[in-house]
Amino acid sequence: MSAPASDTPGQGLSAAAAAGEPEALHAAPLTARSPLARLARDFCASWPALIGLVVILVIAVVAVFAPWIVPQDPYDLAQLDIMDGTLPPGAESYAFGTYWLGTDVQGRDMLSAIVYGLRISLLVGSVSVACALVVGSAVGLVAAFFGGSVDSVLMRIVDIQLSFPAILVALILLAIFGNGVDKVIVALIIVQWAYYARAVRGSALVERRKEYIDAAVCLGLGTRRVLFRHLLPNCLPPLIVIATVQVAHAIALEATLSFLGVGVPITEPSLGLLISNGFEYMMSGRYWISFFPGVALVVVIVAINLVGDRLRDLLNPRLQR
């Protein structure tokens, strides 16, 4: 900010207000709680983010305990009644009860199918992000710590990879690998690791110049210890933000790939595949087969993005992506 700001209190004030939470800034010295507790409190100050978090937790619980919650195992063909095919939402069936969200062409209860689909979505999203996080962070740390040609080669690879859209890379990978949940996860890891590598390298380079790293090296601590016990924890905040948003990305990407027919196989219908299956019936007005799985997908992604948005504001106001 330029010098006249010092003479115009309004500019300074509005800038402080723009930075986020003025109350939090003032309150910080008063409450000597841990940074995590403060983060939790500031997080809860925003109700959209709080709603997002609650939605995620509810969906996660429902997805994990799906077999005990939903009325039907959508993969068990013996439980399906082909006579109940493409019933509209709310339709009653003598054998089954009420199909609240209708049925697909095979007479599968859409509600059950969606919950099972969410299981796959969440599984793919969280596992791929966790693995990519580990791989990417390791690469980023190594690049930042060793520098020189190691750094430039690794970052060159990252740059090239990131210059291609994720969807394209994943599509090609799956064309090579073939269908399957495990293959989708592997493809998503390969697509995502570069984000973490770049972010970790960026913040690690900043941290590396600080004196405590020099001190740790001078103490004769091993490279691995310096990397993982000293450098990594200080790179965490941006990683948390990226990881949150990437879970949403990964879920959307998995759904897209499954929709295109290169993702999960037909035997394990994820949300994308359910939507794809309903496509042909949509033209004749039987919208629910595509509509409700999509709503579920959107709710999950919006919830995660709301949480990610809030975390971004709290953890790193200057973070770009």
């Binding site: 006249p4 003479d7 115009t8 209190p9 309004g10 500019q11 004030l13 509005s14």
Partner: peptide
């Protein structure tokens, strides 16, 4: 003093 100058022209920024 600067705020005085801006006030003359009605150029005081929010929240001023």
């Amino acid at each position: 003093k600067s705020v005085t100058g801006f006030s003359i022209l009605g150029l005081v920024d929010e929240p001023g």
